[in-house]
Simulated scan of single mutants.
Amino acid sequence: MNNQTTQRLAPGTRVRHTAQEWATSVQAPEGTAPIVKALREHNDGSIDYQVLAGEEFSRRIGPDNPMTKPDEWNSTRIKVVAPPTAETRAAAEAVAKEQR
């Protein structure tokens, strides 16, 4: 199954990684990572994104596993869960600004 998106995703968009089969709409209704920014586009049209993932990839997101770990996920391996909100967009922009 190809989950590749054809449009660039906005900062703050909530996603989950396709390898996180446990991350259902019940277990992770808000996804497991917000998009921080697009990093690079490949010849096949896929895009690498910087995301803020949970500290432990295989565990449910929560107070003991916050979404604070910068990681890179390719668009072929993500599923969009929710569009950006003002809160997630602001958080993504703050992280991107810190990296400049």
Score class of each variant (00 low, 15 high):
Ile35Met: 11
Ile35Ser: 07
Ala91Gln: 13
Val51Asn: 06
Ser75Cys: 04
Ala90Gln: 14
Ile61Ala: 05
Lys97Leu: 14
Gly45Lys: 05
Lys37His: 13
Asn2Val: 04
Gln50Cys: 09
Glu41Cys: 06
Asp48Cys: 04
Arg14Met: 15
Tyr49Cys: 05
Ala38His: 03
Arg59Pro: 01
Val15Glu: 06
Arg8Lys: 13
Gln50Trp: 04
Thr13Trp: 10
Ser46Met: 02
Val95Ile: 13
Trp22Glu: 03
Gly54Ile: 04
Met1Pro: 10
Met67Ser: 12
Val51Lys: 04
Pro34Ala: 09
Thr24Asn: 08
Leu52Arg: 12
Ser46Pro: 01
Ala38Asn: 02
Thr68Lys: 11
Ala23Ile: 11
Ala33Met: 09
Ser58Asn: 12
Glu21Ala: 13
Met1Ala: 12
Ile47Val: 15
Gln7His: 08
Val80Leu: 02
Pro29Val: 10
Pro11Cys: 01
Asp44Tyr: 02
Gln4Lys: 12
Ser46Asn: 09
Thr85Lys: 03
Ala82Val: 04
Ser25Arg: 15
Thr6Tyr: 05
Lys97Phe: 13
Ala86Pro: 10
Ser46Leu: 03
Ala94Asp: 15
Asp44Gly: 06
Arg16Asp: 01
Ile61Ser: 09
Ile78Arg: 02
Trp73Tyr: 11
Glu41Gly: 09
Pro29Gly: 10
Asn43Lys: 12
Ala91Cys: 06
Ala53Pro: 02
Arg100Pro: 00
Gly54His: 05
Ala33Phe: 08
Val95Gly: 07
Thr32Ala: 09
Gln7Ile: 08
Arg16Cys: 07
Lys79Ile: 13
Ile47Leu: 10
Arg100Asn: 09
Val36Arg: 10
Pro83Cys: 01
Pro66Ile: 07
Gln20Lys: 02
Glu56Ala: 04
Thr88Val: 11
Ala86Lys: 13
Ser75Phe: 01
Ala10Asn: 05
Pro34Gln: 13
Thr68Ser: 14
Gly31Met: 08
Glu55Trp: 04
Arg100Lys: 14
Thr32Phe: 07
Pro34Asn: 14
Thr68Ala: 14
Tyr49Phe: 05
Asp48Leu: 04
Ala86Phe: 08
Lys79Gln: 15
Trp73Lys: 01
Leu52Tyr: 11
Met1Leu: 10
Ala91Glu: 15
Glu56Leu: 07
Gln4Ile: 07
Ser58Tyr: 11
Ala53Gln: 07
His42Asp: 08
Leu39Ile: 14
Gln4Ser: 14
Glu98Arg: 15
Gln99Cys: 02
Gln20Cys: 03
Lys37Arg: 15
Phe57Met: 03
Val95Ala: 11
Ala33Asp: 07
Ala53Tyr: 06
Ser46Ala: 11
Gly31Trp: 09
Tyr49Gln: 06
Thr6Glu: 14
Ala96Arg: 14
Asn74Pro: 01
Val81Arg: 13
Asp48Tyr: 05
Leu9Lys: 02
Asp64Pro: 00
Ala96Pro: 06
Leu52Met: 15
Thr18Tyr: 00
Val51Ala: 06
Pro34Leu: 12
